[in-house]
Amino acid sequence: MTRHPVPGPSAKHAGTQQGVPAPYDGPIAVQLSEAPSGTPSEAPSEAPPEAPLFEEPTDAELARRGANGDQEAFTLLMSRYRAMIHATCLRIVGDADDAGDAVQETLIGVWRGLPGFRSDARFSTWLYRIAVNAALKEAGRQNSRPLPVEEIPERKEPVRSVADRVTDGLSVRRALALLPLDFRVAVVLRDCCGCEYSEIAGILGIPINTVKSRISRARQALADLLRPNDDPGEM
Protein backbone atom coordinates (compact mmCIF):
# COMPACT_ATOMS: atom_id res chain seq x y z
CA MET A 1 0.00 0.00 0.00
CA THR A 2 1.35 3.35 -0.94
CA ARG A 3 1.95 5.62 2.01
CA HIS A 4 1.43 9.29 1.48
CA PRO A 5 3.62 11.63 3.51
CA VAL A 6 1.76 13.40 6.23
CA PRO A 7 2.41 17.15 6.12
CA GLY A 8 4.08 18.37 9.25
CA PRO A 9 2.82 21.29 11.35
CA SER A 10 2.90 24.66 9.69
CA ALA A 11 5.61 27.08 10.65
CA LYS A 12 2.99 29.11 12.46
CA HIS A 13 1.94 26.22 14.73
CA ALA A 14 5.13 24.22 15.01
CA GLY A 15 6.29 25.98 18.12
CA THR A 16 2.98 25.72 19.94
CA GLN A 17 2.97 21.92 19.74
CA GLN A 18 6.26 21.83 21.61
CA GLY A 19 5.15 24.27 24.33
CA VAL A 20 6.84 27.29 22.72
CA PRO A 21 4.64 30.30 21.90
CA ALA A 22 4.26 30.97 18.23
CA PRO A 23 5.95 34.14 16.96
CA TYR A 24 3.69 37.22 16.73
CA ASP A 25 2.97 37.92 13.09
CA GLY A 26 0.88 41.08 13.55
CA PRO A 27 1.59 44.44 11.95
CA ILE A 28 4.51 45.27 14.28
CA ALA A 29 6.04 41.78 14.46
CA VAL A 30 9.82 41.76 14.70
CA GLN A 31 11.73 39.07 12.80
CA LEU A 32 14.38 37.45 15.02
CA SER A 33 16.95 35.02 13.70
CA GLU A 34 17.34 31.87 15.79
CA ALA A 35 20.79 30.93 16.99
CA PRO A 36 22.17 27.45 16.13
CA SER A 37 21.29 24.72 18.60
CA GLY A 38 23.54 24.76 21.63
CA THR A 39 24.95 28.20 20.85
CA PRO A 40 23.88 31.08 23.06
CA SER A 41 22.40 33.99 21.16
CA GLU A 42 24.54 37.09 20.97
CA ALA A 43 23.37 40.32 22.61
CA PRO A 44 22.54 43.14 20.19
CA SER A 45 25.49 45.37 19.47
CA GLU A 46 23.46 48.54 20.00
CA ALA A 47 20.88 49.51 22.60
CA PRO A 48 17.38 50.12 21.29
CA PRO A 49 16.66 53.76 20.52
CA GLU A 50 15.16 55.74 23.37
CA ALA A 51 11.59 56.91 23.14
CA PRO A 52 11.28 60.59 22.18
CA LEU A 53 11.00 62.97 25.12
CA PHE A 54 7.62 64.52 25.84
CA GLU A 55 7.39 68.00 24.39
CA GLU A 56 5.61 70.67 26.39
CA PRO A 57 2.82 72.38 24.46
CA THR A 58 3.57 75.90 23.30
CA ASP A 59 1.88 78.97 24.71
CA ALA A 60 -0.07 79.33 21.47
CA GLU A 61 -1.32 75.75 21.69
CA LEU A 62 -2.41 76.16 25.30
CA ALA A 63 -4.07 79.46 24.43
CA ARG A 64 -5.99 77.81 21.60
CA ARG A 65 -7.16 75.01 23.87
CA GLY A 66 -8.04 77.49 26.61
CA ALA A 67 -10.08 79.52 24.14
CA ASN A 68 -12.11 76.35 23.50
CA GLY A 69 -12.91 76.01 27.19
CA ASP A 70 -10.05 73.71 28.29
CA GLN A 71 -9.53 74.86 31.89
CA GLU A 72 -6.61 72.49 32.43
CA ALA A 73 -4.73 74.07 29.53
CA PHE A 74 -5.54 77.53 30.87
CA THR A 75 -4.23 76.60 34.33
CA LEU A 76 -0.99 75.27 32.86
CA LEU A 77 -0.56 78.38 30.73
CA MET A 78 -1.09 80.72 33.67
CA SER A 79 1.28 78.71 35.87
CA ARG A 80 4.08 79.71 33.48
CA TYR A 81 3.43 83.43 34.00
CA ARG A 82 1.66 83.82 37.34
CA ALA A 83 4.82 84.68 39.32
CA MET A 84 5.85 87.27 36.75
CA ILE A 85 2.34 88.72 36.60
CA HIS A 86 2.33 89.12 40.38
CA ALA A 87 5.78 90.73 40.40
CA THR A 88 4.75 93.13 37.64
CA CYS A 89 1.53 94.17 39.36
CA LEU A 90 3.24 94.52 42.74
CA ARG A 91 5.94 96.82 41.38
CA ILE A 92 3.41 98.96 39.52
CA VAL A 93 0.83 99.16 42.30
CA GLY A 94 3.19 99.04 45.28
CA ASP A 95 0.67 97.48 47.66
CA ALA A 96 0.45 93.70 48.13
CA ASP A 97 -3.34 93.60 48.52
CA ASP A 98 -3.94 95.81 45.50
CA ALA A 99 -1.45 93.74 43.52
CA GLY A 100 -3.39 90.60 44.38
CA ASP A 101 -6.56 92.21 43.08
CA ALA A 102 -4.74 93.20 39.89
CA VAL A 103 -3.53 89.62 39.41
CA GLN A 104 -7.08 88.30 39.71
CA GLU A 105 -8.31 90.92 37.24
CA THR A 106 -5.53 89.84 34.88
CA LEU A 107 -6.50 86.16 35.06
CA ILE A 108 -10.14 87.02 34.42
CA GLY A 109 -9.17 89.28 31.52
CA VAL A 110 -6.99 86.59 29.96
CA TRP A 111 -9.70 83.92 30.26
CA ARG A 112 -12.30 86.19 28.68
CA GLY A 113 -9.96 87.46 26.01
CA LEU A 114 -8.47 84.15 24.84
CA PRO A 115 -11.03 83.63 22.05
CA GLY A 116 -9.80 86.87 20.49
CA PHE A 117 -6.07 86.11 20.87
CA ARG A 118 -4.27 85.75 17.55
CA SER A 119 -2.00 82.71 17.48
CA ASP A 120 0.51 84.55 15.29
CA ALA A 121 1.11 87.13 18.05
CA ARG A 122 3.45 86.69 21.01
CA PHE A 123 1.38 85.54 23.97
CA SER A 124 3.56 87.20 26.63
CA THR A 125 3.17 90.63 25.00
CA TRP A 126 -0.59 90.24 24.89
CA LEU A 127 -0.61 89.02 28.50
CA TYR A 128 1.50 91.90 29.84
CA ARG A 129 -0.81 94.41 28.19
CA ILE A 130 -3.71 92.95 30.19
CA ALA A 131 -1.63 92.87 33.39
CA VAL A 132 -0.49 96.47 33.01
CA ASN A 133 -4.03 97.68 32.41
CA ALA A 134 -5.24 95.81 35.49
CA ALA A 135 -2.41 97.25 37.60
CA LEU A 136 -3.05 100.78 36.32
CA LYS A 137 -6.71 100.39 37.20
CA GLU A 138 -5.79 99.44 40.77
CA ALA A 139 -3.21 102.22 40.99
CA GLY A 140 -5.86 104.71 39.95
CA ARG A 141 -7.91 103.73 42.99
CA GLN A 142 -5.12 104.59 45.41
CA ASN A 143 -5.32 107.90 47.23
CA SER A 144 -1.62 108.71 47.14
CA ARG A 145 -0.12 110.04 43.93
CA PRO A 146 3.57 109.67 43.00
CA LEU A 147 5.74 112.75 43.02
CA PRO A 148 7.25 114.12 39.81
CA VAL A 149 10.81 113.00 39.18
CA GLU A 150 12.16 116.48 39.91
CA GLU A 151 10.61 116.40 43.40
CA ILE A 152 11.79 112.95 44.50
CA PRO A 153 13.36 113.36 47.95
CA GLU A 154 16.85 112.16 48.75
CA ARG A 155 17.23 108.99 50.73
CA LYS A 156 17.64 109.63 54.47
CA GLU A 157 17.99 106.03 55.75
CA PRO A 158 21.16 105.09 57.65
CA VAL A 159 23.90 103.30 55.76
CA ARG A 160 23.68 99.51 55.88
CA SER A 161 25.81 96.65 54.63
CA VAL A 162 26.03 95.96 50.89
CA ALA A 163 24.29 92.61 51.36
CA ASP A 164 21.35 94.30 53.06
CA ARG A 165 20.95 96.80 50.24
CA VAL A 166 21.16 94.13 47.55
CA THR A 167 18.56 91.84 49.12
CA ASP A 168 16.16 94.56 50.25
CA GLY A 169 13.43 94.35 47.62
CA LEU A 170 11.18 96.49 49.78
CA SER A 171 13.44 99.51 49.27
CA VAL A 172 13.18 99.07 45.51
CA ARG A 173 9.39 98.88 45.73
CA ARG A 174 9.28 102.04 47.82
CA ALA A 175 11.52 103.82 45.36
CA LEU A 176 9.39 102.67 42.43
CA ALA A 177 6.29 103.97 44.20
CA LEU A 178 7.80 107.48 44.09
CA LEU A 179 8.18 107.46 40.31
CA PRO A 180 5.53 108.87 37.99
CA LEU A 181 3.27 106.02 36.95
CA ASP A 182 4.26 106.23 33.28
CA PHE A 183 7.95 105.90 34.16
CA ARG A 184 7.26 103.14 36.66
CA VAL A 185 5.39 100.98 34.17
CA ALA A 186 8.04 101.35 31.48
CA VAL A 187 10.97 100.46 33.72
CA VAL A 188 9.10 97.51 35.28
CA LEU A 189 8.29 96.05 31.87
CA ARG A 190 11.91 96.41 30.84
CA ASP A 191 13.83 95.42 33.98
CA CYS A 192 11.35 93.11 35.66
CA CYS A 193 9.67 91.43 32.70
CA GLY A 194 12.57 91.64 30.26
CA CYS A 195 10.43 93.04 27.46
CA GLU A 196 12.07 94.51 24.39
CA TYR A 197 11.67 98.24 23.73
CA SER A 198 9.46 97.46 20.75
CA GLU A 199 7.24 95.24 22.90
CA ILE A 200 6.85 97.95 25.52
CA ALA A 201 5.97 100.44 22.81
CA GLY A 202 3.26 98.09 21.59
CA ILE A 203 1.94 97.39 25.09
CA LEU A 204 1.75 101.06 26.06
CA GLY A 205 0.86 102.40 22.62
CA ILE A 206 3.67 104.97 22.53
CA PRO A 207 6.69 105.56 20.25
CA ILE A 208 9.79 103.53 20.98
CA ASN A 209 11.86 106.69 21.58
CA THR A 210 9.41 107.68 24.31
CA VAL A 211 9.86 104.26 25.87
CA LYS A 212 13.63 104.65 25.93
CA SER A 213 13.39 108.14 27.41
CA ARG A 214 11.05 107.04 30.20
CA ILE A 215 13.21 104.05 31.10
CA SER A 216 16.38 106.13 31.12
CA ARG A 217 14.89 108.77 33.42
CA ALA A 218 13.31 106.15 35.65
CA ARG A 219 16.61 104.34 36.10
CA GLN A 220 18.40 107.56 36.97
CA ALA A 221 15.75 108.45 39.54
CA LEU A 222 15.95 104.99 41.10
CA ALA A 223 19.73 105.21 41.28
CA ASP A 224 19.45 108.54 43.12
CA LEU A 225 16.88 107.15 45.53
CA LEU A 226 18.81 103.99 46.33
CA ARG A 227 22.25 105.62 46.62
CA PRO A 228 23.62 105.53 50.20
CA ASN A 229 24.06 108.86 51.96
CA ASP A 230 27.80 108.40 52.27
CA ASP A 231 28.34 107.66 48.58
CA PRO A 232 31.68 109.31 47.60
CA GLY A 233 29.98 110.53 44.43
CA GLU A 234 27.68 112.80 46.42
CA MET A 235 29.09 116.17 47.42
Rank of each mutant, 00 (worst) to 15 (best):
M1C: 07
H4K: 07
V6W: 02
G8W: 02
P21V: 00
P23D: 06
P23K: 02
D25T: 08
D25C: 07
G26L: 04
I28Q: 07
S37H: 11
G38K: 13
E42Q: 14
A47S: 13
A47T: 07
F54G: 03
T58A: 09
D59P: 05
R64N: 05
R65D: 11
G66K: 12
N68C: 01
T75K: 11
L76I: 10
L76T: 11
L77V: 12
L77Q: 08
S79N: 15
A83D: 12
C89S: 12
R91Y: 00
I92Q: 05
I92F: 07
D98Y: 14
A99Q: 03
G100H: 08
A102Y: 09
A102T: 06
V103R: 13
Q104Y: 15
I108H: 09
W111M: 15
S119Y: 09
S119C: 07
S119G: 13
R129Y: 05
R129T: 11
N133L: 10
A135P: 04
L136W: 08
Q142D: 02
E151F: 03
I152L: 12
R155S: 12
R155A: 05
K156G: 03
D164A: 12
T167M: 08
D168S: 01
L170N: 01
A175S: 10
A177T: 05
L178I: 09
P180E: 15
V185I: 15
A186T: 04
A186V: 00
V187M: 01
L189F: 03
D191E: 13
C192M: 10
C193S: 14
S198Q: 13
G205H: 06
P207C: 10
R214D: 01
R219Q: 03
L222E: 02
L225Y: 05
